[in-house]
Design a protein around this nucleic acid. Structure first.
Lengths: 203, 203
DNA sequence: ATTATCTATAGATCTATAGATAATGC
DNA sequence: ATTATCTATAGATCTATAGATAATGC
């Protein structure tokens, strides 16, 4: 059967959304085109009408997810411009985010996978770092512009590393201790411990 | 042809070393048993005389690499007990480490991959975090035991995250900026910038 | 008539196994 | 005789393609 032009565009977006979720959950090599299409309610063969290759899908799915998560940081800054940095840190280092990699931070879920990919995909992530860096540099405290940028980079590193470790670790109490320690050290005096009640799954 | 009992044990260790390097470079799903055996100078079929499955190989290869990298941290502490934390941080955040994932930190190279694995493999990494945490907690500054432990966890997070981001990013100058920023913020006043002359590739 | 999707399959790759081979160690 | 390794292959899975199908849009 065939489908309207509008329906076709919707299908395409759904493929991208399903793909970005499954990639984050299982890694680029851990999920196949057939299962992604099944997840979108379509058949395997239809895929190549939408995308030239799996690599193209990876790049586009990551670009879409990246722009969404950058927007979510920007939105936090808009809503809570006084304590935006603490809000971003607490939201990021939540157990909800840890337990939902499929809707969370692309760097924490796919960072090492990306390092093994080709230029187009790495460029998406490079621009994602730049965009988040700019947002975070505007939200952290610091005397000079350079100091705020440096602090923003170190904060991002701390967030990503804490999430990677918290997810890799088997022991729940050690996992929560990692999140809490990172929140305490990064957040400084304003954020005390891991928040479990945040809006959840952003990256 | 057959081989002496001693030679067989050597072959086994070589398989583990080749495997841990290739896993770090290409991910658990990015390299097959056949290529690992080829890298060890053996044939595909011989593998199952040494290991029951690829999963068993993953767990044992990671355990071996983990114990080696924990020893290397312990050695730094022994040699430079006055500024051990700074030495660990600078060595970790070097461009040499960034450019040699195959011999570097398992968490930075395989963290998200591990989160998708079964219990035996995750346990290896959990114990690895504990061992490194203990070493680092003895090397960082802090008033109480709890404060040092918290700082050690946050430091590890910062190291791992900075390496993940520095490797994912395409732009060399942004990549070095990430390493330098993390070193400056983590190291505090003692370590200024990324050291390029360290002993290299430890994790 | 065009085209989005589906069915079927080619070709490559990957884990794991079975049986053969040949050198070690009792 | 035992056993470490090799050859060959089964069975599953994965990317990508070719041709068929059927509903949309000129």
């Amino acid at each position: 059967m065939r489908v309207s032009r509008e329906q076709c565009a919707e299908n395409r977006q759904r493929i991208l959304d399903v793909a970005s979720k499954l990639f984050r959950e299982k890694g680029f090599d851990g999920i196949g085109v057939a299962d992604i299409m099944k997840g979108a309610g379509l058949t395997h063969g239809g895929f190549y009408g939408h995308f030239a290759s799996k690599d193209v899908l990876i790049a586009q799915a990551c670009a879409r997810a990246m722009s969404g998560s950058v927007s979510s940081w920007a939105q936090i800054v808009e809503q809570r411009h006084d304590d935006a940095a603490a809000a971003i840190v607490d939201g990021y280092l939540s157990t909800k985010h840890r337990d939902r990699p499929g809707t969370g931070c692309l760097f924490a879920a796919l960072g090492p996978d990306v390092a093994r990919q080709g230029k187009p995909i790495r460029r998406v992530f490079t621009e994602g770092v730049r965009a988040r860096l700019e947002i975070l540099a505007g939200a952290v405290a610091g005397r000079s512009r350079a100091a705020r940028r440096r602090k923003a980079l170190a904060t991002m590193s701390g967030l990503v590393g804490a999430m990677v470790l918290a997810r890799a670790v088997d022991d729940p109490s050690l996992s929560e201790e990692i999140l809490a320690a990172a929140a305490a050290e990064i957040g400084g005096q304003c954020s005390g411990h891991t928040s479990l009640d945040k809006s959840g799954g952003q990256g």
